[in-house]
Nucleic acid binder design. Structure first.
Length: 550
RNA sequence: GCGCCCGUAGCUCAACUGGAUAGAGCAACUCCCUUCUAAGGAGUAGGUUACAGGUUCGAGUCCUGUCGGGCGUGCCA
C-alpha cells in the first residue's frame, strides 16, 4: 500500500474517489484543491471542490458537499473530523495519531525528510550566473546565482536529476574592449601616457590584471598590436575570481558552456539555414534578419550584422537547441529583467525550428538595490562604482547574502539594506532560524547528559496546543518544498521556515523539556529533534548553515 | 509612443496561484528575565490592497482603463 506522506495528496485521492458518484465527464472535473485555512476553526485542511462543482452540476454547493462527505472513505487514524462550513467548504481535522505517525516518520527519515518523487525521472538543466568574464560578480549576479542554485536544490529534492550550467561568451565586442582596457593599463603601468578606450572598463581589477602581466612578461608585450594576451589573461584571472566568489556561497556548477561551441560545431549556421528554409530569415542592408514580426513583435530582429558577426540572439537560439538536443525534459534559465526582451526571440527560434518551446522556462528576477546608510546605491559594471558580491559577503557573510536573495519573490524588486543585513539580532530574519536550530541542539545536549532512554518515545503525551501546532507545521515541509520547486520560488520555503521557527518558539515558551517527567522529556525531545531536523533540511536547501551553537 | 514587471500597515515584504475575518518583521507604545540561549515572548495601535469600472457564489490575485515607479524597446550582451 502506498504511503501518503503529503496529506494533500491523500485528501485529493479520497475526494476524487467520492466524486465518481457524480455523472460528469472526467475532463470537466475541476482540479481538487486542498488548502490550509487561515482560520483555525476551519480545520487543518479544506477543499473548495463543492463550490467549483456547483455550476457544472447545477446544484447548490452545500448539497454537493453533503453528497461528497457522505460517501467519503478515509482512515480514522488520519482524519478525525470532516465538516461542511460556510458556502460549501469541506473542512478536515487531522487525527492525533496521524501527527504522531508523521513525527516518527520525520525522525526515521532524518536528513532525507522532505524529499519526494514528484519529479522522478525528469532531467532538468538549470542555467544560471552566466556572467561573461568581464569583471567581478555584482550583487545582481548574486541574486541570479543564489536563485538558480536554490531552485536547482529544490528540484533535486523533488526527485529531478539536475544539471547546473554556466553559459558564457569570451569573444565579441565586450571582451575586445576588456582586452584593450587591460592593455591601456599595462602601458600606463609601464609609464606610457595612454587613455582607456571609449567605454573602457575602469575598475581597479583591470590594473591588477595589467600588473600580473608585467610580473609574467615584463615589457615584452609593449609593442604588440595583438590584444589576445591581454584578453586571455583577463579572462583567466576574472574567471578564477568568479569561481572563488561562487564557492564562498557554496555554489558549484556542473558545466561551463562556452558560446564559441555553437559557432565551432556549425549549429549557428544550421539555425540560420533552417530559418531561411522556412522563410523566416532574409537579407537586408547587408544583414540577416529574423522575422520576429511573425511571432508578434513590432520589428524584425538582426541575427547577423552587416559586419558578418552574429548578434547574441543567434548563438542563444543555437545554445537552446543544443540543450534540448541533449535530451533535457526541462530547461530553466535564470536571468535579470534587463534580458526580458530577448527570450521571446529564443522561444520563437526554437518554435520555428520545430522544438518544443514549452520545455524552456524562464525565471526572471527584478533588480537589486543596495541600500547603504539609508540611501540607494546605483551601480554599473563598466563604471566600477558597483558593490561586488565579494564586498557584500565580506560585510554580511554568505548565509545572510543567500538568505536576502532568497527571501523575496524573484519577480519583485529587492532592496538589500546592508545595515539591516549586518544586524546580528532582531532585524535579521536569518538569525531567527539559525537561533531556533541552535537552541534546540543546546537543549538536546543537556537532555543527553541528564537522561538515558531505552524505550520508544511516548508521543501521545504531546497534547499541548503548542505541541500540536508545531507538529502540524512540521508535516507541511514536504509539500512546501514541492510548492517552492514547482513555482521556482524559493521565498516560499523561507516563509514556511519562519512559521516553523515561530511555532517552535511558542512551544519553547509553553512547554519545558528539562525537569519534566522522564517520559514527557523524551516525547518533547523527540518533537524538538524533529524540528531541528526540518530546520536543518530547509536551511540546507537554501544553502545556509544550521549551526548547533551560536 | 509601444512591450514586460511592480504598486498591499509609516518602512521592507507575505498571502499556498480565485476562497472564508489580508498576515509577518522592522519602527511606535505597554508589559515579561531567581525558568532548557531575552539573538526571545505576550499585547496595543496601524489597511477603502494606487484609482475607476468589469468578470462570479467569492477578487489583493483574472479582464479593461487611468495614475505612479522600474526595465526594455541597438546591426550592444
Amino acid at each position: 500500500m502506498q504511503r501518503y506522506y503529503i496529506m494533500k495528496d491523500y485528501l485529493r485521492k479520497v475526494i476524487s474517489t467520492s466524486l465518481a458518484q457524480f455523472d460528469i465527464n472526467e475532463e470537466d472535473i475541476p482540479e481538487i484543491q486542498i488548502e490550509k485555512p487561515n482560520q483555525p476553526e476551519h480545520g487543518d485542511a479544506a477543499s473548495n471542490i463543492a463550490l467549483n462543482l456547483a455550476s457544472i452540476l447545477k446544484n447548490s454547493p452545500r448539497k454537493i458537499a453533503d453528497q461528497i462527505v457522505e460517501s467519503l472513505e478515509y482512515e480514522a487514524n488520519k482524519i478525525d473530523t470532516v465538516e461542511i462550513a460556510g458556502p460549501g467548504f469541506i473542512n478536515f481535522r487531522y487525527a492525533e495519531n496521524y501527527l504522531f505517525d508523521e513525527l516518527n516518520n520525520i525522525l526515521e527519515e532524518g536528513e532525507r525528510f522532505g524529499k519526494s518523487s514528484a519529479l522522478d525521472g525528469q532531467r532538468i538543466l538549470v542555467e544560471y550566473v552566466s556572467a561573461n568574464p568581464t569583471g567581478p560578480l555584482t550583487v545582481g549576479h548574486g541574486r541570479n546565482a543564489v536563485l538558480g542554485d536554490t531552485i536547482a536544490n529544490l528540484l533535486e529534492w523533488t526527485g529531478a536529476e539536475v544539471d547546473r550550467e554556466y553559459y558564457f561568451n569570451n569573444a565579441g565586442r565586450q571582451m575586445r574592449v576588456l582586452g584593450q582596457s587591460v592593455k591601456a593599463r599595462y602601458l600606463q603601468e609601464l609609464g606610457q601616457e595612454v587613455d582607456l578606450p571609449d567605454d573602457g572598463y575602469e575598475g581597479e581589477y583591470i590594473r591588477d590584471i595589467a600588473k600580473a602581466l608585467i610580473d609574467e612578461h615584463g615589457e615584452e608585450l609593449i609593442d604588440s598590436d595583438n590584444i589576445t594576451p591581454f584578453k586571455e589573461k583577463a579572462e583567466q584571472v576574472i574567471f578564477e575570481d568568479i569561481q572563488e566568489t561562487l564557492q564562498r556561497m557554496d555554489i558549484e556548477m556542473d558545466a561551463f558552456f562556452n558560446e564559441q561551441e555553437v559557432y565551432d560545431d556549425g549549429s549557428i549556421d544550421k539555425v540560420v539555414e533552417t530559418l531561411r528554409e522556412k522563410d523566416l530569415a532574409y537579407d537586408e542592408d547587408g544583414a540577416t534578419w529574423f522575422k520576429t514580426t511573425e511571432f508578434g513583435k513590432d520589428k524584425d530582429t538582426v541575427l547577423i550584422k552587416s559586419s558578418g558577426e552574429p548578434t547574441y540572439r543567434l548563438p542563444d537560439i543555437a545554445y537552446h537547441v543544443n540543450k534540448l538536443e541533449r535530451g533535457y525534459d526541462q530547461c530553466i534559465d535564470v536571468f535579470g529583467a534587463d534580458h526580458i526582451d530577448t527570450y521571446p526571440d529564443v522561444l520563437s527560434g526554437l518554435d520555428a525550428m520545430g522544438y518544443d518551446k514549452s520545455k524552456v522556462d524562464v525565471v526572471v528576477y527584478q533588480f537589486v538595490t543596495i541600500v547603504k546608510e539609508g540611501k540607494p546605491f546605483k551601480m554599473s559594471t563598466r563604471k566600477a562604482n558597483f558593490v561586488t558580491l565579494d564586498d557584500l559577503m565580506d560585510e554580511v557573510g554568505s548565509d545572510v547574502t543567500r538568505f536576502f536573495f532568497e527571501m523575496r519573490d524573484p519577480n519583485t524588486h529587492l532592496e538589500f539594506d546592508i545595515a539591516e543585513a549586518k544586524e546580528a539580532g532582531d532585524k535579521n530574519p536569518v538569525f531567527y532560524l539559525q537561533y531556533a536550530h541552535a537552541r534546540i541542539h543546546s537543549i538536546l545536549r543537556k537532555v543527553e547528559q541528564e537522561y538515558s532512554f531505552d524505550a520508544k518515545a511516548k508521543l501521545s503525551l504531546l497534547t499541548h496546543e503548542s505541541e500540536t501546532e508545531l507538529m502540524k507545521s512540521l508535516i507541511r515541509f514536504p509539500e512546501m518544498i514541492q510548492s517552492a520547486a514547482r513555482s521556482h520560488e524559493p521565498h516560499r520555503l523561507i516563509n514556511y521556515l519562519d512559521d516553523l521557527a515561530s511555532a517552535f518558539t511558542s512551544f519553547y515558551h509553553d512547554c519545558r523539556i528539562l525537569g519534566e517527567e522522564k517520559e514527557l522529556v523524551q516525547a518533547r525531545s523527540a518533537l524538538a529533534k524533529a524540528t531541528a531536523q526540518v530546520l536543518a533540511n530547509g536551511l540546507g536547501i537554501l544553502g545556509i548553515s544550521a549551526p548547533e551553537e551560536m
